[in-house]
């Protein structure tokens, strides 16, 4: 039977499991979260390991950059991410600090590529998020990222807008991050009822007017625009939402 090892969907739990497997020289067929349904030749194995925070502390002290890469891979939507992290971790024991230069290893080139993709998406969304002001002065924004970048975004806005109440709603992963001028809370959208009454749209209108003016007609280049600002994000970018209505 091919063995599929199951972890609770947290980074700490995944690392705990991987550390355990490498310690006892077990090679998993795959590592998945509990909602994975095995096929005929596979069986799910749940080890119920106790989370071991020491492992993160250890990596942070000795391998902080590789740890970062593993974390970004964990946040990605790649279907094979757990196995990639497993092999990355395994090779980290062997090659230590030289690992990141070993791009001829598949787990290294894949990890770097995926983590780059995740950071890239987070960076783009730092720009593309649009807040609206609700009647109770709270700023509210919806995002639809492919990867689970909500926590990166929340940390960015904590530094940028420390004196505002804000909520970022990740529609694709059904998560909300809420900031109360002190801390960030991550909450599943099932557990929250929101009153999304927004205030006047004066500044939204001003922004759209600005946006429509700033493009130079003689240089029109929609291909280039879409390259930088993919269409999948347009539904939550107010000036582009209006563009869609105009062209219809």
């Amino acid at each position: 039977m091919n063995k599929i090892y199951i972890y609770e969907d947290t980074f700490l739990n995944l690392l705990t499991l991987i550390a355990y497997l490498t310690q006892y020289h077990v090679t998993p067929t795959n590592i998945k979260t509990s909602n994975y349904s095995p096929n005929l030749f596979e069986e799910n194995i749940t080890l119920n390991l106790k989370n071991n925070p020491k492992i993160i502390a250890y990596l942070k002290e000795n391998y902080s950059y590789p740890l970062k890469i593993m974390y970004y891979v964990y946040l990605s939507s790649d279907t094979n991410k757990e196995l990639i992290i497993y092999y990355f971790y395994l090779n980290l024991q062997k090659y230590r600090h030289q690992l990141l230069n070993m791009r001829n290893l598949k787990c290294v080139s894949a990890s770097l590529k995926i983590s780059h993709y995740v950071q890239n998406e987070a960076h783009k969304l730092k720009g593309f998020i649009r807040f609206t002001e609700l009647t109770n002065k709270v700023l509210y924004a919806k995002v639809n990222p492919t990867n689970n970048v909500l926590i990166i975004l929340a940390n960015h806005f904590k530094k940028r807008l420390p004196n505002e109440y804000w909520i970022i709603h990740d529609e694709n992963h059904h998560l909300l991050s809420i900031y109360d001028k002190k801390n960030i809370y991550l909450i599943n959208e099932k557990n929250l009822q929101l009153n999304l009454q927004s205030t006047s749209t004066t500044y939204e209108d001003l922004w759209c007017a600005f946006y429509d003016t700033i493009g130079i007609k003689e240089r029109k280049n929609i291909r280039c625009q879409m390259n930088f600002m993919p269409k999948k994000y347009w539904s939550n970018i107010i000036e582009m939402r209006n563009q869609n209505e105009k062209s219809n």
Binding site: G127, C224, N227
Partner: peptide
Amino acid sequence: KNTGGLGNASYSGICHSFASDGRCIS
């Protein structure tokens, strides 16, 4: 850096939108 007010700068810069001519609006 943010010194108790609104906003901070990002060293890498951030593009917030792209105009119809493909140039970034930041």
